[in-house]
Structure formats: structure tokens, C-alpha cells
Design a protein around this nucleic acid. Structure first.
Lengths: 103, 103
DNA sequence: TCTATTGTTCGATTATATTCGAACAATAGA
DNA sequence: TCTATTGTTCGAATATAATCGAACAATAGA
């Protein structure tokens, strides 16, 4: 598997996004990614979970179209698909990120 | 039980809201409520589910702070807590409603 | 007081999610 | 080619959610 498959943005449902963002760990991942403003490897996140658990959460974030993962060597670089999500669901991700940074 | 208890808006977590909105039936309820622009009884919703199932979904919407239910006689009048939610999580509910009406 | 109406609660079933250790796969670099 | 690094996948256990019929509760109105 050379690169990981991601859903096309048209295929992403609002319920998928809501579901992905309903878990504290995943919300944390999304928040850290947004605040970093750059691609991050899975290991870079400040979360205290075994890697198999994190891998599971990244899988759900990818399926929801929120995160894009590019393989670079042995590392997997994760990026938020902000622009696409914003285009399809204006304001949804932005307002969630704003709420995250307030709490 | 004279009136139903609702959470104070301070106690509402973002994850609760995301979770409540991750279910198609509940999203439908929220959408119909918003579009109606008025209080609605449970029976008024155009959903094809047994009442025990609907009652379950309303319970979750209430717990998430999204819906307020006032008992009037034998009817339960449901209203969206738009203003409070908007105050605490600006843009979140609005953008979801906008997305709902596009699909 | 009896009955119809409107929802909630209960209980059981089925379906989905979460969690995490262990094994596996892909790659970089020695 | 061997090894370390980075994640994924597998499998099994546990937890949480959805579904819905049946019984129950509260009220209005006859």
C-alpha cells in the first residue's frame, strides 16, 4: 500500500464529521493539528494512548474526510483537510476549532 | 414529574453536541425544528419510527442541551435552544443547520 | 370517574465502538 | 542484509448505543 486512500469530499456526510468529532481524543487530535498549522506525524501528538488506539482514531478521522495522511518514508504525515471541509460545510470546522480553543 | 430537567448551558460539552448530531434521525429532528421556527410536539415530526425510539432520541438531544421540552397538557413541546448554544459555541449550530438545508 | 391522547420508562436484543497487546508491513539507513 | 522506526491490522474483551414492543404515568375532556 503505497499511499492511504481517502474519501472524496463529495462522499463525506455531515453525520460522519459529527461522529468523528464526538470523541474527546479525536477532537484533541483535530485541535492540535489546527493549532500546529502544519502536518504532524502520529507520534507527535501529545496524547497518552497506545499506538493501536491512535491508529484507530486516525482511521475514523480519515474516513470522515477530516484528516489526510501522506506517507513519507516510515512516517505518516497528517494534515487537516480544512479548505475542502470548509468549502463543503462552511463554518462547521471553523466554529468547532474556535470552541475548542476557548475550553 | 411536573417538568423535564434540562442541563444548564455551562454544563454542555462540545462532544455531547457533536455526538447528538451524529445520528441521522436526530439531525432530522433538529433540522425540522429549525425550519419550522416554532415549538413542535414529538408526534409532529415527519419520521417513521416508533415512539419509544423517538423518545430515546429526544432524551439525547435534551442531554446535549440542544432541545428544550416543555410539558403542556399531554403534549411535550420541543424547542431548539439556538440562542444559548449560539452564545456558548458560536457558529456551530448555525453552520450545521445551513449544511442540512443544502443536502 | 372513565377514556383517549401523548410520551416516558423498562427490558431485552442486536449492532457498533473503544481499547490495547501482539503480530505484521514498509521503509530508511547502517 | 540487518535493524530500528513508524504505523497498521488483527483479535478479543469490554462498553456503549440503537431499536422497539409493552407497560406505565400524566393530563384533558367527556
Amino acid at each position: 500500500m503505497r499511499q492511504i486512500k481517502h474519501p472524496n469530499i463529495d462522499q463525506v456526510e455531515l453525520t460522519d464529521i459529527m461522529y468523528a468529532l464526538s470523541d474527546p481524543t479525536r477532537l484533541e487530535i483535530v485541535g492540535q493539528l489546527a493549532n500546529a498549522g502544519r502536518k504532524m506525524t502520529c507520534g507527535e501528538f501529545d496524547l497518552n494512548r497506545p499506538k493501536s488506539s491512535l491508529s484507530h482514531h486516525f482511521k475514523i478521522l480519515r474516513a470522515a474526510g477530516l484528516v489526510e495522511t501522506l506517507i513519507e518514508g516510515t512516517e505518516h504525515m497528517n494534515a487537516l483537510r480544512v479548505a475542502e471541509i470548509e468549502q463543503k460545510f462552511p463554518g462547521v470546522l471553523q466554529s468547532v476549532l474556535t470552541a475548542l480553543n476557548k475550553s
